[in-house]
Design a protein around this nucleic acid. Sequence first.
DNA 1: GAGACAATGTGCACGTGTTCACAAGGTGAC
DNA 2: GTCACCTTGTGAACACGTGCACATTGTCTC
Lengths: 228, 228
Amino acid sequence: MAPPSGRTIPDATVARLPIYQRVLGELQDRGAATVSSEDLAELSGVNAAKVRKDLSFLGSYGIRGVGYEVDYLLFQIRNALGLTQQWPVVIVGVGNLGRALADYAGFTSRGFPVAALVDDDPAKVGTEHVGIVIRALSELRDVVRDLDVAIGVIAIPASGAQRVADLLVEAGVSSILNFAPTVLSVPDGVNLRQVDLAVELQILSFHRRHRNRERGAVDPAAESNPRR
Amino acid sequence: MAPPSGRTIPDATVARLPIYQRVLGELQDRGAATVSSEDLAELSGVNAAKVRKDLSFLGSYGIRGVGYEVDYLLFQIRNALGLTQQWPVVIVGVGNLGRALADYAGFTSRGFPVAALVDDDPAKVGTEHVGIVIRALSELRDVVRDLDVAIGVIAIPASGAQRVADLLVEAGVSSILNFAPTVLSVPDGVNLRQVDLAVELQILSFHRRHRNRERGAVDPAAESNPRR
DNA sequence: GAGACAATGTGCACGTGTTCACAAGGTGAC
DNA sequence: GTCACCTTGTGAACACGTGCACATTGTCTC
């Protein structure tokens, strides 16, 4: 019987599936044959009921009284995430962040090989990084076509990000991961995700402040800015 | 009158405040005196009603019929986020990612100066990166105390992440930003945020697959894995 | 083959987040 | 001073996400 392939999987669940996948991979390496929702929850840092509900969106792949078969569940999650094939990635911007991303083993090991590096600095074009020749931004279209690139990663300063996004879309890339701290607009049908490293720190800062306040600490940032 | 300093600000709002802050900063640089919720929404990539509701949690800082004063609103957001002071950061792990983060201008410019770099590789300890001497992991406690470090950033492989997290907590750091792809456990009172770069790509992969499916494309990853 | 046991799958209630629509309130022209 | 106009702030309805509690259904022992 074909799997139900859960018609619609909630966004919140989709965001957790990669975590389960990673944990299941570790369990598989350790030789575990099955895992209960409780153990999987513990290892993933979530609630057991949530794990069961999440997995139920993929189909009924558990065995009551036993748990989930690690191999089978892993396959189903990979399938749901579309990770049964590799998705070559192009990284635009070979600065510090671009290089770090290119070197990051986690991309390749999870099915996202870095197929190409692109930069608009003539001094960098033609040089190699981790065995990949850096191409010019003007060659983007050819790079995407020839290497069958599916995903573009933007790792340049904010000022040039929209232009690069436009070029990526024009070149045929339909998924973009943007590290530049700016809001991008892309046409319908193009999938965009945003990672802003400083935002994370700012959220931490908020919680730190709030925690202190709860404990009755004196607020060092008192109102002192006149209005007008 | 003292600002109400919104008793409780929803998490979803907190996550958007840094975006508003960034956009308002750009408006300020451009010399804008006021901004309407509609314009701010457009620039931030969100809905205007959401902007107004978000800002209302901070207090009533808008002027009906006019909009929000850029300077004043910016101050209030910074205040709410606890960004009226600097929060020195220590980066643990001076590999590619650690270096990229250390070089990232966005950290310092938004109030999170990189005060220290730490690594456990003896070959790196004592060398400099962007003018900061790399210290040994064993010196972490001193580094945190002497430089008044508030936030620890973990930029090492998953295998050592929990140990480093423990060391950071022990050293007195109460906020941790973890880039290692693993679930960390920290005591109550310690704030932890997780950024997994590969997870973002996997979410993109899901949406790509789902989009194709909607359009009636044939699923290349058909059921072919026998159960057992 | 029957019964004890174990863990899934899910109905339900609750909390959080989003969006609409509009009253309230401020501005500026005349 | 009055009036037309503009934009905020928010009540209310709806959508989404979470977690409990338990019936269901499978396994394993004897």
